Simulated scan of single mutants.
Amino acid sequence: MKTRWGILVTWAALLCCLTGCGKEVYIENQRFMVAEGIDFDEDKKLVIYTASPVFSREAKDRYKITSTTADTMRIGKKQLESQINGSFGPGKLQSMLIGKNLLQQTNVLPYLDVFFRDPKNEINANMIVVDGPVKEVMYADMRDKGQLGSVIKLMIESTYKGRISVLTTLQKFHQQLMDNTITPSITEMRVEKDDLVISGTTLLHKDGTYATSLNIQESSLLLLLQRNTNNPIPLTFHLPPEIFHSEEEMSYVSFNINKVKVNFKSKFEENHLTIDIRMKVQIDLMERMFTVDMEKQSKQLEQAVEDELKKECQAVIKKAQKHEVDPFGFGIYVRAHDYKNWKKVEDNWVETLSDATVNVSPKVSIKSTGVSE
């Protein structure tokens, strides 16, 4: 017993002699960048914006926006540090905003290089392309919404969960840009009457410059073609009114795609690529604004939805082909199924895809019509 008590006393004495690991850090003296944005000004100079929460009890604002003009992100950070009362705490970045104006003029990757070299930086931050000046987002009225960084993060993650936009982190963007089998796709945002709105998806060329944009409906179809179907994909179609003798303004049907089985085949014939995508699609009806006798006309409704789904999928693919991008990752499957021919086209894959014949053949079945039928 005495031995045991002796050991405990010895350990207690040693613990009392231990010192801290360093100088204490007060949270009110730290500036955690939760949102950062970059854009070009009228003179094509890089403008950097940061949003950081304010922890001081005396401060009236819940977050602070700082901005500077610099040649590089690293230089910009030093200049921003000279404007704040405290020091930047790295590794808390949640959102990285890129101005569309910058993307239309240059490859954004060199400006983001510092994030991939400095281990203190957060590469899991979500990327967002701003349709308009980044300044409009950073200085948007947040009085009835909350802190800017938290609001943007929640919007990006909730719209992705609802399958109306993509979700691309800095790390994923870097992978997409470096991989020959796919081109980057990034959530697009804009400001409408002082409100932040997710407007769709921005598609980039392989050189990191702006290619085109997809609206919300096209973004949902993009996720379908990417086989990103872990959550239901919502779609609304305007069917030809003559099919069910409905009025033009009432010929809408909405549904969720809950289960998809895809069969992907590719073949080269005299250097021309043909891709056949067959999909078995199970849907749940969520809204129908016209009258249908489901006992007699369910197959007719399935066929109408099937035809429209095929048409809209083909339109999204044609749009990507026109701008020579592959946000679907079709190259991943061509490489897996026909590696010999893939090696011949891997260095000019997007050009090959733009000239390819891509056929989408969905087979739709309605699994649920709701509780009212």
Rank of each mutant, 00 (worst) to 15 (best):
W349H: 11
G146A: 10
K45P: 09
A125E: 02
Y160F: 12
M294K: 07
S354M: 06
E28W: 03
N107E: 06
F290D: 13
S56H: 11
P241A: 03
I366W: 02
M286S: 13
S82R: 06
K23T: 10
R57F: 12
S87W: 00
A320M: 10
D43P: 00
F244V: 02
G6K: 03
D194Q: 12
D326V: 03
T169S: 14
I48H: 08
M127C: 13
S199T: 15
S372N: 12
N231W: 01
E28T: 12
F173K: 00
I152S: 01
D293P: 12
V305G: 09
T168I: 04
T202A: 15
G146K: 08
K280I: 07
S158M: 01
S67P: 02
V137L: 13
E188G: 08
S67V: 04
L301E: 10
A51T: 03
Q147I: 11
R62H: 13
I283C: 06
M286G: 15
T274E: 10
R74S: 14
N348A: 10
S361T: 13
M96T: 05
V34R: 01
M250E: 15
Q300V: 04
D41N: 15
S372H: 13
D118Y: 09
I128F: 07
Q300H: 05
N228S: 14
L170C: 03
L154D: 15
D141A: 03
I233S: 03
S199C: 13
C16L: 11
V54M: 07
K296E: 14
G200H: 04
M289Y: 10
K280W: 02
M33D: 10
V9D: 08
V253P: 04
D284N: 13
R62K: 12
R190H: 14
T10I: 14
R31M: 12
M189G: 08
P240F: 01
R163Q: 15
L103W: 02
P110L: 08
K145A: 13
K92E: 15
G208Y: 11
W11D: 01
T229W: 00
S219N: 06
G37H: 05
L148G: 11
G22I: 01
F115C: 05
S150Y: 10
E312C: 01
T72N: 06
I38K: 01
V358N: 11
K310C: 10
K60V: 09
R62T: 14
S87Y: 00
G162S: 13
E188K: 08
Q176T: 11
S251I: 04
F328V: 04
K259E: 14
E287L: 06
Y63G: 02
M289Q: 13
R31P: 03
N107D: 15
S246R: 02
F88C: 00
I283V: 15
I65R: 07
R57Y: 13
D207R: 02
I317E: 09
S254G: 15
I27D: 07
V316P: 00
T181S: 14
Q104V: 04
G149W: 00
V360T: 10
P53Q: 00
T202Q: 06
Q79P: 01
V129F: 01
F116M: 02
V292Y: 10
